[in-house]
């Protein structure tokens, strides 16, 4: 048995098989798949509702999640991302991978990496709301139920990534 630790991950095919089984368990028990960006969106709307409840009521895209008496946090996907954080943290701790550090390409300074992460995250948060889901809730979940839009989305994600990979190769190589 290999010793766990930094950089000692599961064989990707084993990880995929476990992930697929967790996803199936979700369908069996709840009728829907897994999600991530939807949970973040609801947390953000909940914060906006605290600061400016009238604005949430008047903005259609926000009101859908938290307008009026609706509680934006009353949804499985919010509980789900709490679980993702707890499960991820527990797994990292047990494998000796919990450490305050910054993952970056060999040529990228730490502060630059932080800004790039912030920028990439911003683009992705916007895109995930536009596409009504991210890699979890759209590509993985929809892919496993053969949803047409999810397969288009998945192809588009890989296309978008490879489109900019060459010009941006210095970020990671």
């Amino acid at each position: 048995m290999k010793r766990p630790g930094p950089g000692r991950y599961w064989n990707p095919y084993v990880g995929g098989a476990v992930l697929g089984t967790v996803l199936f368990a979700s369908f069996l028990l709840t009728g829907h798949g897994l999600g991530a960006s939807g949970g973040v969106a609801r947390v953000v709307v909940a914060a906006q509702k605290v600061v400016a409840p009238d604005h949430v009521d008047r903005t259609a895209l926000l009101a859908e999640l938290g307008g009026g008496t609706r509680d934006p946090l009353d949804a499985w996907v919010v509980v789900g991302i709490l679980g993702v954080a707890l499960g991820g943290a527990a797994s990292g701790l047990l494998a000796g991978r919990w450490r305050l550090e910054t993952f970056r390409g060999p040529r990228v300074p730490v502060r630059t990496r932080w800004l790039l992460a912030l920028a990439g995250g911003t683009v992705m948060g916007f895109a995930a709301r536009l596409a009504r889901g991210c890699t979890s809730g759209q590509a993985l979940t929809g892919g496993a139920t053969l949803a047409v839009g999810s397969w288009v989305f998945m192809l588009a994600v890989f296309a978008g990534g490879y489109l900019v990979a060459w010009p941006l190769r210095r970020l990671w190589k």
């Binding site: 998945m154 192809l155 978008g160 990534g161």
Partner: peptide, 9 residues
């Protein structure tokens, strides 16, 4: 959305 998300990735 997928194209943008891939770039952000």
């Amino acid at each position: 959305g997928g194209l943008l998300l891939g770039m952000g990735f």
